[in-house]
Each structure stands twice: as structure tokens, then as C-alpha cells.
């Protein structure tokens, strides 16, 4: 799969290229700002764009805005945003527009190469990857709502679901069995009063409610 990298720090760009190449991506272009990124995506139509959030000229949220444009204009390009700090507000911007093919991770996660590559592949395949820090930020805003009915363990499971992980990955992270995870997820769906529908859709609804992005 082809990928485009947008990162204004040359030093880090070299590292990102190496990591993606190791993961089997073909690097179509490396750029240093959002405008060049959009041009590169238009030209190469890559399967993945790895984008730094803070880029010239404003050094604020250029990457987030570029990601929204990319997901809208070139839906076949998945976007993974990288940032020194993650902000739930930017995550909300991303997730209200898309629930697939987006990732938002701390830069330091790249250092855990194998996990990072797994997240990037997941996003490229149409999944999501949210940094645990974003999830933690959303937790501090929780109001009195059905989420309060969850046990701490169930909330942990939900947080991992929000990060975009599969049942197996959640089971590995919490060191429990797959069936235990399935049981927790059923409890969560029941406690959040989600309508009986196909499991995947309910799962997405649960995550959206958790993220506060759900209209219901």
C-alpha cells in the first residue's frame, strides 16, 4: 500500500519513513506542511496519510483540518494523525465526521514500533485508533449518565473498544480470556440501553456514547 507522510520535523520524518517502510508501505511522498499534503494526496491517491497535527504556517491544528478535508474528498485515503499532545477536542472533530479510517495517536507511540504498525494497519483497513490519552481526557468530562453504571472493569473494556481494538486485543491487554471480554461487552451494551441490532453497530454506538459524540 502506498503512503504519504506529512511532518515538518525532518529528523522525525526520517524515522517515520523507516517505520512505514518496515511495515511494508511504499512511501509516495514526504511533505512538510498541510498544503503540500493535500497536493500530494490528490496526486498519489495513497491508501494512508500519516500526518503531524502541528505544522506550518500556524503551528496549531493544521493536520486535523487537512485530515478532515482528506477524509471528505478522498475517502479511500485513511488518515493517522500524530501529535506531541492529543486533544479530545480535535478527536471529537475527527470522529463526528468519520468513524472509520482515522487514527489519532501520540507521537511517542511510534517508538513502540510493532504496536504502532498494528494501529496504522488497522486504520488503513478502515478501522480506528484512538490514543488512550484521548480516552482519558474524555473520561474527565463524563457527566452523570448511563456510563456511571459501568463497573471500573467494564469502563476499561469500553475505553479499549474506543481505542479501536478487537475483542482479542482487549483480552490480551487486560490479560483475561476472550469469553470474559465478550461477557463484559454484553453487560456494557445492556447497561447503556443500546437497541438490539447487529453486534458491530451496537459496538460503534457504545463507543460513540462513551466519546460523547452520540446524538441519542
Amino acid at each position: 500500500m502506498r503512503a504519504v507522510i506529512a511532518e515538518d520535523s525532518l529528523l522525525l520524518r526520517v524515522g517515520l519513513v523507516k517505520v512505514l517502510e518496515m511495515a511494508g508501505f511504499e512511501i509516495a511522498a514526504e511533505v512538510g506542511d498541510a498544503e503540500a499534503l493535500l497536493a500530494a494526496v490528490e496526486e498519489h491517491r495513497p491508501g494512508l496519510a500519516l500526518v503531524d497535527v502541528r505544522m506550518p504556517p500556524g503551528f496549531t491544528d493544521e493536520g486535523v483540518r487537512a485530515a478532515l478535508v482528506i477524509r471528505k474528498q478522498w475517502p479511500q485515503t485513511a488518515v493517522v494523525l500524530l501529535s506531541q499532545y492529543v486533544e479530545e477536542r480535535y478527536a471529537a472533530d475527527l470522529l463526528t465526521a468519520n468513524t472509520s479510517g482515522v487514527g489519532y495517536l501520540l507521537k511517542q507511540r511510534v517508538a513502540d514500533v510493532e504496536e504502532f504498525v498494528a494501529s496504522v494497519r488497522r486504520v488503513a483497513a478502515g478501522g480506528t485508533a484512538l490514543d488512550p490519552q484521548v480516552v482519558a481526557q474524555l473520561l474527565v468530562r463524563r457527566r452523570s449518565d448511563p456510563l456511571d453504571r459501568l463497573t471500573p472493569r467494564e469502563r476499561e473494556v469500553l475505553a479499549l473498544m474506543a481505542e479501536g481494538r478487537s475483542n482479542t486485543a482487549i483480552a490480551e491487554a487486560l490479560i483475561v480470556s476472550d469469553s470474559a471480554v465478550a461477557k463484559h461487552i454484553n453487560n456494557i451494551l445492556a447497561k447503556l440501553d443500546l437497541p438490539a441490532a447487529d453486534a458491530d453497530h451496537r459496538r460503534v454506538l457504545a463507543v460513540l456514547r462513551f466519546l460523547g459524540a452520540s446524538p441519542t
Binding site: L12, G15, V19, V110, A111, V113
Partner: peptide, 14 residues
Amino acid sequence: TQQRLVSLAVNLGL
């Protein structure tokens, strides 16, 4: 410094 450190960690991770 932050970019340099991340780059260092990425290289060590690689």
C-alpha cells in the same frame, strides 16, 4: 528537543 527525543525513541524502537 521534543522532536529529537521522539526521533531517538523511534530509532531505538526500530
